[in-house]
Amino acid sequence: MIKIFILCAVFVAVAYGNELFSIQIPGISHYIPNPYIAAPGSSSDLADPVAITEEVATTTSAPLDPPTTKIPENKTSEQGTVEDRTKLVAKLFKDYDKKVNPDDVKLKFGVSLIDFHIDWQDPRLKWNADEYGGATVLRLESDMVWKPDITLYNSADPVNMINCWHSNILVFATGEVLWVPPCKMISRCHLTLNREPYGEQICGLKFGSWTFDGYILDLDFYGGNKTMDLSDLDNSSGFEILSNKAEKTDKFYPCCKEPYPDLTFNLTIKRIPGEELIKKW
């Protein structure tokens, strides 16, 4: 079987015959601006210099007041104080069991070149922000909460189907949980080599839960975006993206009455000839 491997955030490799073409994707930033991170403000007030009054026989001047700096309070509008957060975490996780999944999960899922966007509701993690200094969000280690077992069905590596860094997870007072982990994966695709190596190739990334059916965990697109986020792909990748679209499928098996949903992100790509690639630079 001829395969194409798409390695998100690292490289894209196309293999056929006995040759392997590796195309580096430079210029991809590993910093993800987070709209939920607020920096405490600070300001400084420097007293105005006192004017010097000159007289005929005597010159006097008032000493300058030393500069003063206002110390910011140990809180922000969205996370309260450290005492607020400590009490909140103790309250939320007193009887919380991450091994137990929430009911009727409506999962929102998105894919980019460097990360996933995974969003769901866990009613056990709700709180009244007014009772905790106005804290509306917590940043916690991802291993502290239940997470969906989304995987890449058509992975080319059956042992490490998806490799994700254990980044922090955001938990909001509404019970919303948002996880944006940087991930690496290798997908298997069928190639048509009628015009090798410059023919058009269609590659799909098929994601779904490994154990939950659609009645327990339903899938939909994050932000309603039915495409893969390719904003970090630059002109030096060596490939041109001809089509980028995604679709949801509810699959039924003969054994079972419940649906098993998946989201498949399809890319149609074409290798750019060397001389054209140089012109793009």
Rank of each mutant, 00 (worst) to 15 (best):
I2F: 13
I6L: 09
I6T: 10
L7M: 08
L7E: 12
C8I: 08
C8P: 15
C8W: 04
A13M: 06
A13F: 07
A13S: 09
A15R: 08
A15E: 08
Y16N: 09
Y16G: 01
N18Q: 06
Q24G: 10
I25V: 12
S29I: 10
Y31S: 07
P33Q: 04
P35L: 11
Y36A: 09
A39K: 14
P40W: 13
G41T: 13
S42Y: 12
A47R: 04
A47I: 01
D48Y: 14
I52K: 07
I52Q: 09
E54H: 01
E55I: 00
E55C: 07
T58W: 13
T58N: 12
T58R: 12
T59R: 04
T60C: 00
L64Y: 15
L64G: 14
D65A: 15
P66M: 04
T69Y: 12
I71M: 10
P72S: 08
N74S: 15
K75R: 13
Q79T: 07
L88C: 06
V89T: 14
A90W: 06
A90P: 04
F93C: 04
D95V: 07
Y96Q: 08
N101Y: 06
D103T: 10
D104K: 15
K106L: 07
K108T: 13
G110D: 01
G110F: 00
H117W: 01
W120E: 07
D122C: 05
P123V: 07
L125Q: 08
W127M: 00
D130H: 09
Y132A: 01
Y132P: 00
G133H: 05
E141L: 10
D143Y: 14
D143N: 12
M144C: 10
W146S: 06
W146N: 04
K147A: 05
P148R: 03
I150N: 03
I150D: 02
T151G: 14
L152T: 07
L152K: 09
N154F: 02
S155R: 02
D157E: 11
P158I: 03
I162Q: 11
C164H: 08
W165P: 00
L170M: 10
A173E: 11
G175A: 05
E176K: 12
E176F: 03
V177K: 06
V177F: 02
V180W: 02
P181V: 00
C183T: 03
I186A: 11
C189P: 11
L193E: 14
N194I: 05
G199V: 10
E200V: 01
C203W: 08
C203T: 12
G208Y: 03
S209N: 13
D220I: 00
F221W: 14
G223H: 07
N225Q: 09
K226C: 03
K226A: 05
T227D: 11
M228P: 15
L230F: 05
L230A: 10
S237G: 08
S237Q: 04
F239V: 14
F239P: 06
E240N: 05
L242K: 08
S243V: 00
K245G: 00
E247A: 08
E247Y: 11
K248R: 10
T249F: 08
K251M: 04
P254G: 01
C255H: 13
D262M: 02
D262V: 00
L263F: 00
N266L: 09
K270G: 05
R271F: 07
I272V: 13
G274N: 11
E275R: 06
E275I: 02
L277T: 01
K279I: 04
K279N: 02
K280Y: 04
W281G: 10
W281V: 13
